[in-house]
Design a protein around this nucleic acid. Sequence first.
DNA 1: TCCTTTTGTTAACTTCGGCTAACATTATAT
DNA 2: ATATAATGTTAGCCGAAGTTAACAAAAGGA
Lengths: 153, 153
Amino acid sequence: MISKALEEYLKTMYILQKQNGNIRVTDVAKKMNCTKPSVNKAINHLKDHHLLDYESYGKIELTQEGEDLAKKILEAYDIVYLFLKDVLNLKAEEAQEEAEKIKSVITDQTINQLAKYIHKVLDLRNLDCNYDINQEKCRCCVKRTARKEAKHE
Amino acid sequence: MISKALEEYLKTMYILQKQNGNIRVTDVAKKMNCTKPSVNKAINHLKDHHLLDYESYGKIELTQEGEDLAKKILEAYDIVYLFLKDVLNLKAEEAQEEAEKIKSVITDQTINQLAKYIHKVLDLRNLDCNYDINQEKCRCCVKRTARKEAKHE
DNA sequence: TCCTTTTGTTAACTTCGGCTAACATTATAT
DNA sequence: ATATAATGTTAGCCGAAGTTAACAAAAGGA
């Protein structure tokens, strides 16, 4: 198990990879509001845990394991974010900051319950959640969309 | 501003004071699952911040400031707890653990939104929240009860 | 009273996650 | 091609929050 702080680095790296096609120490530092040496430390720890491949001055690449974990972390983040923004009506920016912090402390169990709840609420409002970072809908929404389509046929 | 960890100590001490009529290092350590030296450190920090009065081997007493802060912390905890238990349907024990962690990271603004939301939900279900640690209902529920009584008259 | 147990304190160490300062490497522009 | 700028690395430090081991003080029972 890696720490919540390391999870945050991993998540950020995953997003940067998707957004920019590469992961650079400087960019991670900017996104995380920290210094480059801190990023460097994180990289080495993540490497120790086989979550990424790296050697000095080289390319940073998440391993399969790293990517899978990043996706899981991101999904948790998105669920909390959605709740804060669309249910509690926090401003996008605040929801973002708060989601990060909350997601970092809660268990999978709570995330799951929250996911269920939020989807129920959105369902009542006939909305989809907009989880799309992986170019696909989240598990719950895929099911809902399928149900909806079945109805219309 | 004190750290979230110190807030947790303060909250625990406040509760122990209410429950036992006094605050002892050993009891705090038990409640917080930590060692006595850790509690000792916390006491000294809280003293530095004028949140409690203490001298070696003496009585631990929260100052007015300390008590006010403790109440605020506790209210935040209760709001999150209620949400987890009564809205997300987590088991009491889990809700307790998670609430502690979540409360420790979110802003007042988020707590307020959550409070509003939870009270709206409970209102729909015609329930009161059971915030009673201070032998009084929480601010929102007092208002609601008043409204309800007004209706019945 | 005095011995034992419980309670509280101190000192020194650990881990984590951050930092700065200084340096090494790579990329860029002229 | 080389000087400059940008990027990445290393070393050493810091504070927070915890720990263990050893000791001091207070409380209680015989």
